[in-house]
Amino acid sequence: MKYSNPQIPEGINTTDRHPLREFLLLAGGALVLVLLLAWLVGGFGGRLARLLPFESEERLVPTDMLSGDAGPPLQYYLDDLAERVSSALDLPAGMQVRVHASGDDTFNAFATLGGHVLLFRGLLEALPNENALVMLMAHEIAHVRHRDPIVSIGRGAAIQLVVGLLFGDPNLAALGRAGIYTQLHFNRDMERSADADALRAVYAIYGHVAGAADLFSLIQQKRRHAGRGEPPAIFSSHPLDRQRLDAIADSVRQNGWADTGKVTPLPDAYPTWMADLARHGGAAE
């Protein structure tokens, strides 16, 4: 008996396909799959959430978390503005907006479930005039009117559920992120339409839209000042500052609105209210 080990040709147990080709094919396919699924499911989840009546949305909010720090004069002033904005935006009956001011120096404002709008002192203090404040409130109230808070929760939950189920493998976490970017895409749409409605409200109240763009110039300035560049739009929940300013200019041009006019200054007592707000906010902590 003769025993030997002849050389066996290479490549019988392996596939000779370029790994990069395989990668592009699979990753591309998976990406399309994630985006398509997230888009479909997100749209469905959002639509489903919208079916929830506004009244029951209010019950989802822990109201004690949203107690504002504003003193009576500031609260009265904000409520009055909210009232004017609500009627300008033609809020449906039964949709009640509640505005709260927080003493925190965060540079932010948001609308959440149940028609609650939270404005932070950091942003309130920096506003140059009443028109910008109205633009800000109108933007947030437009979110309420569009039912954006509940819709984005429904969307987020639906996207996370499906993406988590299909792409739960930790090795595919990067693909799962694509689902989140789809959600951000929906978010940017919401922001754009809230901006457009807010501008309409400002025009309805003042007869011109001067001062409205100040809000976004302020945000842009603040960002530059902090030395933080904006992330590329697809990674952001909001459109780029530049795009928002351009959108305002476009809409002014299309509607033939006056973008110059006398801006209404903030009340004389405004700085005192802010100082008061800061004190209350500090005491609450």
Binding site: N13, T14, T15, R17, P19, E22, F23, L26, A27, G29, A30, L33, L166, F167, D169, N171, L172, A174, L175
Partner: peptide, 24 residues
């Protein structure tokens, strides 16, 4: 890279070529 490729393959099914050469 290969692990990611294999995880992707897990979605679609089929021959996991990235592990073939490893085991070989």
């Amino acid at each position: 890279f290969k692990r990611f490729l294999a995880a992707l393959r897990n979605l679609f099914g089929g021959r996991v070529i990235s592990y073939e050469s490893l085991l070989d």
